[in-house]
Write a protein that binds this DNA or RNA. Sequence first.
RNA 1: CAAGCAGGCCGGGUGAUCGCUGCGGUUGAAUAGAUCGCAGAGGAAAGUCCGAACUCCACCAGGCGGGGUGCUGGGUAACGCCCAGGAGGGGUAACCCUACGGAAAGUGCAACAGAAACAUACCGCCCUUUGCAAAAAGGGUAAGGGUGAAAUGGUGAGGUAAGAGCUCACCGUCGGCCGGGUGACCGGCCGGACGUGCAAACCCCACCCGGAGCAAGACCUAAUAGGGGGCGAUGGCAUGCCUGGGCUGACCCCGGGUUGGUCGCAUGACCGCAGUGGUAACACUGCGGCUAGAUGGAUGAUCACCGCUCUGCUUUAUGCAGGGCACAGAAUUCGGCUUACAGGCCUGCUUGGGCC
RNA 2: GUGAGUGUAGCCCAGAGGCCUAAGGCGCCAGGUUGUGGCCCUGGAUACCGAGGGUUCGAAUCCCUCCACUCACC
Length: 112
Amino acid sequence: MAKKLALTRRAQYLAVYESGKAYASYILVIKMLPNNLETTRVGFSVTKEIGKAVIRNRTKRLLKEIVRVVDIKTGWDIVFIARRKIVEADYHQLYKAITELLKRADLMEQNA
RNA sequence: CAAGCAGGCCGGGUGAUCGCUGCGGUUGAAUAGAUCGCAGAGGAAAGUCCGAACUCCACCAGGCGGGGUGCUGGGUAACGCCCAGGAGGGGUAACCCUACGGAAAGUGCAACAGAAACAUACCGCCCUUUGCAAAAAGGGUAAGGGUGAAAUGGUGAGGUAAGAGCUCACCGUCGGCCGGGUGACCGGCCGGACGUGCAAACCCCACCCGGAGCAAGACCUAAUAGGGGGCGAUGGCAUGCCUGGGCUGACCCCGGGUUGGUCGCAUGACCGCAGUGGUAACACUGCGGCUAGAUGGAUGAUCACCGCUCUGCUUUAUGCAGGGCACAGAAUUCGGCUUACAGGCCUGCUUGGGCC
RNA sequence: GUGAGUGUAGCCCAGAGGCCUAAGGCGCCAGGUUGUGGCCCUGGAUACCGAGGGUUCGAAUCCCUCCACUCACC
């Protein structure tokens, strides 16, 4: 994922946490906030309670890959927050969970 | 063939499609993009338990305090690491384990039990005196009993009133002498010299150690302030304390602003091979090689085939279906230690059994 | 990443080599008191001291290794 599409500052995360809308499932939570830009920027939060470094890195890579593949509407800052049960999900289960959440949040492009 | 011991090594592979980070070339005003090429996690990257490099505290030296290490010799930049050796302990053996200096420098502690825990005698044993006897008193003794985690060298013999290193033999300890070894230590001879344990209790002895850490530190840009207080050159500067040389002209605290970028940052006590020296750890020389560099933090995802393995069905072999493939992710960089780890490979050795 | 610290009943904590099978408070249980409950009184239970080794005759305490948690940083 290109760097310009990532949230890279703590202040950006805090802004999304403070004023963003939230949608949740059993394995992850998303928070979203309009950013008035041409692009959509995403960030990932995988805390220590999820697991050790290997587990956390793998989780983030899976999330990144799915976000890269899925078409998301532009103009939003989105943070994906992992919950503890995410370690039991494989790529396909995670893909389903994310697309369902994004549909509920009305962030999916219609032609995707 | 079985069981075991020691050392070394690997720790999934191939292909397709879609991605990520860095470096180099081309293009470009450009550290923006585009495009081509190359590279891209570990044996522990981990824990952060030691040691260093590097940076700052201006620099240097000495003392006190504090901390660390602890058989000997060697290796190393250094170490609490490694190698070799000694001693003690374990194993039939290969081999393994050990915080392994000092308790006759001093101080302290040893609960309970026990007569007594470092200076002594409860039950005993023996002798003498008194007594018809039972027993009592005085003395000798430390072999036996009992207590305890631990009881004053051990075993046997002589000796004796009973006993005792009192004497003797062997063993152990200590001291002296001689010999071997760089040394720890080993061997021999002589001497009855034979007074517990704890130093991971204080301590003594020998050696080592200034403090902080890459969020160190340097530079650039932006922003805020341009203030208040202490002190007043008898000050400040290595930050546990003190002293000397020296340096500096100021220094400290509060309050306020920023939370950006670049460097540090990847050629190194580096890796591979060969030779030489050394028992070895390791060192030297020659030739060849370049091997991650992120910063909300890259090194990935999906699919197919192969390999290993488990379960079920089937089966002469085997085949089919489904599942699993460890521990674990670089963050300034090295040298170690420790801890985690599915499965597998190689080499040497020991013991037992069988066959020739 | 670097550095520092703490683990003892359900909770907060004391202890610092033998009187420790571990003290105290809150909470819990039972009884008393009350018409009932609370307050109050009496009694009781709950810990092999984070885990594993070692030193010592003896370890919560001393040493080593590991685990979990907390804090600080320009």
